[in-house]
């Protein structure tokens, strides 16, 4: 792998609730290299957004965090809030599914971008506004939208404004949490294409959170599959699609790529009642006695990590490529 920009090691995030402790992230590890995109995939409640928020240092104060989040030479978890805020925006920026909940409704699109730029750069107001105009153009927003307020823009345009704000300070890492889930398919394509272009232009790295495997195929270099707070699989995008490894990954793939609807039986375990053994065993078609008793440890073979008792690194006979390419 290229030199990692961000490295997350054995990240544990726990919350105390009235009904007990829940581990929303339980030993999550991954690394993102320069100019690389990692997609985190998983169903709701699997902990993918919490991991993203923890990298931004935006977890609520009562969260108990352990492990390591290393950005270049700095261990972010050891940083004081003041030190951390030097990374936010300038080094690491984030965009969300619902741009409307992040944009200020009473400030025009152009001024919001200028504000973000001015907050992190020493410049005059005039310079900031000029920079905002350049950014608007860069993300494909017509010039007349500079003075428009967020509610006057379409969902796609709002997301472009968010992207422009996130890029205002030229971050090295962009975290995008379901950036296109709320958009029409046509607009989704446009936004993904925009992210591709910007990533290449600025040699940015991206952490993209999605539940849509189509988005993964379109964007990812590396894919991380999360389930019930655990990273089940971490592999290169070709491996993930052409030789899906973990039974959970294969089941997800079957749902979208299969020619008939093939549901995954059962439902996600509740984080308050952690199951013994492999968290996926109750729904796994390959589960054996060992899976019900012992929690599988991450194993790495040929650059691919899996948490599965069956994983030996040999994926022959698990080929789904024909099924995938026929769609």
């Amino acid at each position: 792998m290229r030199k990692p920009l961000l490295e997350v090691k054995d990240l544990q995030i726990k919350f105390e609730t009235k009904r007990g402790t829940i581990a929303v992230s339980d030993g999550v590890s991954f690394a993102i290299g320069e100019n690389e995109t990692l997609c985190l995939v998983g169903e709701s409640g699997c902990g993918k957004s919490v991991v993203a928020v923890s990298i931004m240092g935006l977890l609520p104060a009562h969260a108990r965090v352990a492990g390591e989040i290393r950005y270049r030479e700095a261990d972010l978890l050891q940083c004081s809030p003041g030190e951390w805020s030097r990374f936010r925006g300038r080094e690491i920026a984030m965009i969300f599914e619902q741009p409307m909940s992040c944009l200020n409704p009473v400030i025009s699109a152009g001024r919001q971008i200028a504000e973000a730029y001015a907050a992190n750069n020493r410049c005059s107001k005039r310079e900031a506004l000029a920079e905002a105009r350049r950014k608007l153009d860069e993300v494909g927003i017509p010039e007349n939208c500079f003075v428009k307020f967020p509610h006057e823009l379409s969902g796609g345009m709002q997301q472009r404004v968010m992207i422009a704000i996130a890029l205002a300070c030229r971050p090295n890492l962009l975290i995008a949490d379901e950036p296109t889930a709320a958009l029409d398919v046509t607009v989704q394509c446009q936004i993904l294409e925009l992210l591709h272009c910007l990533k290449d232009r600025y040699r940015m790295s991206m952490l993209l959170i999605t539940h849509d495997l189509g988005v993964v195929a379109e964007m990812a270099d590396t894919v991380g599959v999360m389930y019930a707070g655990t990273m089940m699989e971490l592999s290169g995008v070709e491996d993930f699609f052409y030789r899906p490894g973990h039974p959970y990954s294969r089941a997800l793939m079957n749902v979208v790529a299969g020619n008939a609807l093939s549901p995954i039986r059962g439902s996600v375990p509740h984080l308050l009642e952690p199951v013994p053994g492999c968290p996926f065993h109750a729904r796994c078609v390959d589960a054996v006695e060992q899976c019900r008793r012992a929690r599988p440890q991450p194993r790495i073979v040929n650059g691919r990590m899996e948490r599965c008792h069956h994983f030996t690194g040999d994926n022959s006979g698990r080929q789904l490529d024909q099924m995938v390419s026929s769609r």
Partner: peptide
């Protein structure tokens, strides 16, 4: 606009 599941076709 239908995203392919084949990363080679991105």
């Amino acid at each position: 606009s239908l995203l392919s599941l084949d990363p080679a076709k991105r």
